[in-house]
Design a protein around this nucleic acid. Structure first.
Lengths: 327, 327
DNA sequence: CGCCATAGTTAAGAAATACTTAACCATAGA
DNA sequence: TCTATGGTTAAGTATTTCTTAACTATGGCG
């Protein structure tokens, strides 16, 4: 007998065979594999032609295994059980009691950290490791369970679930404004604070147009490294910015910051839960996501309440060119 | 943990992974699987994304397995070994000492049977079961090893290897002709013997044209069930036919039959060895085929010698319409 | 007994997957 | 320092798998 290495028949047809042989029904096998009966029929036919032997006897509406079919089934069943065991062991959570989350430092410090106590009290057997990151952290080394990012949800090879949409408001310290001049004039004189978020880049032209100073450079400009610093700069009265609602709405509610103009923008970035698809099946992840979605409902509720309390708010429509994926 | 049934990742990517993990080289895995290195690279990437974990660590030009990769490899290796064992057991010959051959009764009786003694003497451990059949016998019940058919070699789901080409000659008993009249006139008066072979149907119009009697029905017509009877009819002087060279050349050499006209036709049917592809790997089949090809060289040699001895032979070109697959 | 539902089959076309090619990157070795 | 090597990726092509629709041969029910 030749020693040339064996070339397996199409593996899909072997899997189809295994299911058909186990249930002795092409129809049932089709249901199990989420394909049509015709697909199974064709797969089995191809397999029989490739192997050169019949694997089933046909009895019009029923099938039974031939001797060779029985022999092959015994091997195929064990083989696919092994594959299933191996794959399941891979995608099962190797560390079910520790949830490693990466998110924006600003979102972590301004919103999430202060709420995590509630989660930990509720879920005592899940430890949270919060890992701030300005950009999408890599899942490639296997040490990260979930990422909460602001972006477009288009991360290659990863699943992204929308958490909540983001809105941008003009925000500053109340002490920066008084009644001696018109608000727009006062604002035009304030430094603008930016943090490099790509969704903001497209907003300034509109902002300036609203202030009536189209196509002139920003008078004064404070650029900070991320939104955490940006919020601190706002709170210390360094200037004005279009701030993300999720980060400032509690400060506005407390009167520590104000929204001096009746305008807002819907960011084309939203907050997403991002991870490899199998991570979304881990108990600790699904538990955290359920809790988080409950908590972020307060952001959405606050936004709706804010809109209701300020009917004069006007939505600026931004025209975008090439949009980055997000951060 | 959810009880929803596990859906395996693409099986091809698991096989690619297995080979890459075993040799720790995408390049080597590509060679083993007869694809390009890029294909393996993409398969592994897809698998890692689907499973949500890295399986290899990359070191520019080298790879090593991660912990999860090692775990999965152990399962995958065993699983594919099982599949290979099962498949090999299927396509290996369950009955290596008995070769069941189906062929045309005419070819069996006129040519093959008388030579099989030589084969059996040469190969004492292979028993031949010769099973005459007017049409292609089914391989579906697993009791047939090889078929020798006259056709176009286009049998669905089966492999067909050309054995030899067939030629058609006008043949009759020598006693049917004398010197009193011109040969063509005498032949036109003879009954035509046919056996239903589709390759003959298209020949008669040309035959008649050659005799100078275009578009008139055959004067007299003896139809028999197959070529075995046809040869007996020829030998008993019942008429003329366009006979297959392989069946009559020995009778012509002995003077028992003659070819009264210097014409011939190349049949669009040829003799083929037909079987499910794996059967061509069985030792008994390859042994028989080697022997048979040696023996059928005498037919081809005889044909070439016949052409050389009769340089006046003219090849008639037949125009065909829709052609049947053969028998 | 006739009709309807059922499971398997097949052909043709569409959808999805896998592969190739070419260009690229980061080394390692000569 | 330059070249060869193994892995990566994008774009386009080839192949495989699937769906749909029509078909066949039952088996069971009214």
């Amino acid at each position: 007998m030749s020693n040339t290495p064996l070339r397996l028949p199409p593996l899909k047809s072997l899997l189809a065979f295994r299911h058909a042989a186990r249930s002795l029904s092409f129809k049932d096998a089709a249901g199990q594999l989420h394909v049509t009966q015709a697909a199974i029929s064709q797969q089995i036919k191809t397999l029989e032609e490739t192997l050169g032997v019949p694997l089933f006897e046909r009895h019009t509406r029923q099938i039974s295994l031939t001797h060779e079919g029985q022999y092959l089934f015994e091997h195929a069943e064990k083989a696919f059980e092994l594959l299933e065991t191996g794959v399941k062991g891979i995608i099962d959570d190797p560390n079910p009691n520790t949830l490693v989350i990466s998110t924006l430092p600003s979102f972590a410090s301004r919103w999430l950290v202060s709420r995590l106590g509630h989660f930990q009290e509720k879920e005592k057997d899940i430890n949270i490791h919060l890992s701030p990151s300005l950009s999408l952290a890599s899942f490639s080394d296997g040490n990260l369970d979930l990422s909460i990012r602001l972006g477009q949800g288009t991360y290659a090879g990863l699943r992204s679930d929308l958490l909540f949409d983001e809105f941008l408001l003009p925000v500053c310290h109340p002490a920066l404004l008084n009644n001696t001049k018109e608000i727009k004039q006062q604002l035009a004189a304030l430094p603008v604070i930016t943090d490099g978020g790509p969704d903001l880049i497209h907003v300034w032209p509109e902002f300036q147009r609203y202030l009536g100073s189209t196509n002139t450079p920003l008078k004064s400009h404070l650029h900070v490294s991320d939104s955490t610093i940006l919020i601190e700069a706002l709170l210390s009265g360094q200037g004005i910015t279009m701030a993300r609602f999720s980060l400032v709405y509690e400060l506005i509610e407390k009167g520590q910051l104000i929204c001096p103009l009746p305008i807002y923008v819907k960011s084309y970035y939203s907050f997403y839960l991002v991870a490899p698809a199998p991570h979304f099946k881990h108990h600790k992840v699904t538990t955290f996501i359920s809790w988080l979605k409950g908590e972020t409902k307060t952001i959405e509720a606050s936004w709706q309440a804010y809109l209701k309390a300020h009917p004069e708010l006007e939505k600026l429509e931004i025209s975008y060119g090439k949009i980055e994926d997000g951060c």
